[in-house]
């Protein structure tokens, strides 16, 4: 990540979409009541979901939602990178490939045939990958969806010309700050909070359920230790594999660990039972 460049008085903003649900762009339309203020501080020159105004680049800031999953996407993201001084990926799809990256473990032809009668009409790549796998990215906002507060912080930082401040810790810290009783320790629920990037405010444990890692792996996560703990307390490996393969399954740490668990499970099942 690089330091943010000094912004002109009204930076030119562009929002781009790849494979995604539109939920992260919708957070921009939420913006905690600050949408019209944002629209005043920027010139919104390309934001197809919200405006027919469509001016060519170069742009000062580009927000990119979605993952790369078609041949056309690959060409388009390079073109977009060339048009954006500061490129920010927003959300689990753009930063980690999204839930659609589950196809990366299977055959894309098999996937297309299961959904479409004539799969030859559908142009798709075998994988769904994050934007950073294709072009350099200057900053990323995690989450499925991204947090509105973090988005407003990012845009504010752009206007002021400073580096955005986002939490450098894991969800566990947010639960402690919120006063949530730990669902893993107190109730034995396998929870990804100890290894997941903060930003949601510790939302799921506050709803009496596990964190399923939608902000992706946090800083220096010790996954082997955590899954070992859950296994020793009775959680089957296949359930842990599914937990890691949710909304950021292709993020390095989660992918590596889910592959390790799956291989261990396969090896255990292959052994003759007494």
């Amino acid at each position: 990540m690089t330091a943010i460049p000094p912004a002109p008085s009204r930076p030119r903003l562009a929002v781009f979409k790849f494979a995604s649900c539109d939920g992260c762009q919708l957070q921009l339309l939420d913006a905690q009541g600050r949408l019209l203020e944002i629209a005043d501080r920027f010139t919104i020159d390309h934001f197809l979901e919200a405006s027919s105004r469509d001016l060519p680049g170069p742009y000062d800031v580009g927000l990119v939602e979605g993952s790369i999953s078609t041949p056309a996407d690959v060409a388009r993201i390079h073109e977009i990178r060339g048009q954006c001084r500061f490129l920010v990926t927003i959300g689990a799809c753009a930063t980690a490939g999204g839930i659609q990256a589950l196809r990366n473990w299977a055959s894309a032809a098999d996937y297309a045939a299961a959904v479409y009668a004539r799969p030859e009409y559908v142009a798709t790549l075998a994988t769904s990958t994050p934007i950073a796998a294709h072009v350099p990215v200057d900053f990323e906002l995690r989450g499925c969806p991204i947090d509105v507060g973090q988005l407003v912080e990012l845009l504010t930082a752009v206007v002021v010309g400073r580096r955005p401040r986002v939490a450098p810790h894991c969800v566990c810290v947010e639960c402690k700050a919120r006063g949530t009783v730990c669902v893993a320790v107190a109730r034995g629920i396998p929870c990804l909070g100890p290894v997941t990037q903060a930003g949601c405010g510790g939302l799921c444990p506050a709803c009496d359920r596990e964190c399923f890692g939608c902000f992706g792996p946090g800083p220096q996560p010790n996954l082997v230790s955590l899954t070992g703990f859950y296994e020793r307390h009775g959680t089957p490996r296949d359930r842990l594999v599914r937990l890691l393969r949710s909304f950021t399954p292709w993020a390095d740490d989660f992918r590596t660990e889910s592959d390790r668990l799956e291989a261990a499970d396969a090896a255990a099942n292959a052994e003759p039972r007494p």
Partner: peptide, 21 residues
């Protein structure tokens, strides 16, 4: 819109995970 194959990726998931997916 790039296809995301939800009906296929739901196969093999626990019913409890489906509303989130």
């Amino acid at each position: 819109e790039p296809p995301r194959f939800f009906e296929r990726l739901l196969v093999g998931r626990d019913v409890r995970e489906v509303p989130d997916i």
